[in-house]
Amino acid sequence: MNRIESAFANKPIFMPYFPLGYPDLDTSIDVIEALAKNGADLIEVGLSFSDPLADGPVIQRATQIALEKGITVRKSLAAVAELRRRGVTVPLILMGYFNPMLAYGLEKFVCDAREAGADGFIIPDLPLEEAGEFESALSGATQQGSEVEAQANGVNRPSTTLRSAQDGELPLIQMLAPTSPNERMEAIARNAKGFIYLVSVTGVTGARASISDGLGDLIARVREHASVPVCVGFGIGTPEQAKQVGALADGVIVGSACVKTIGENPNPVEAAKEFARSFRNAMR
């Protein structure tokens, strides 16, 4: 069982998002560690991009600050490795836009992410139609990874590194939206790996006043075709909303509210602990 599968042993799971480098690199690492050790079951680790077109104002601003403070893909991957060194065991999914990954080199990015201890990828501007190239990089990296491992060990013995927790290739998490028609939903859900990221509203990231009425039906439509857990994100901002959505879905993704609450607090690490606990408690 890999880390993502283990995380879904107790559903619904709580999945906060936080961008590396915000408000600065060291604090963001501390914040993610605090989230992981206070109730987050899986963390979406944000990679910053200058033109985040699926994001609302809160995440735009945070990632902009991260970039101004000098965050890069390389530093972000090093931060993931640091989190593993600190004993963070929850799955860490890298969420970022495609261009910085392309610039880094897809194969190298996937390899280095795996080496650092990441568990998967969410790329909002990579729909099913364009996923092939990244999928190839993923399978290439898996082969390359196992060759390196075999060489390092001399014999075909399982490695004892953190990487050995991973079984096979890391998943590219597929997203579904309320606008996805049934046949498209089926095509995407059928091949989904890890879990499905269901976007709950038509729009960009950011907390909304209430959960949309049709969410239950939407989740039911996805479940018809899905063999992996279904997690809901976009628009969920309070523990009460998380509880509501958690009653319907396998996991709840909280991004903008997490970034805003923690980023605005003079003591971000304490805020992260409190934030994770409040959502975890509400969702039990």
Partner: peptide, 24 residues
């Protein structure tokens, strides 16, 4: 998949969030 070619050689494509794919 698309009715018209989505690419010009290696260029072009549809790198957008899933929400927009049905609109395209």
């Amino acid at each position: 998949m698309t009715l018209l070619p989505a690419k010009f050689g290696i260029y072009g494509g549809q790198f957008v969030p899933e929400t927009l794919m049905p609109a395209l």
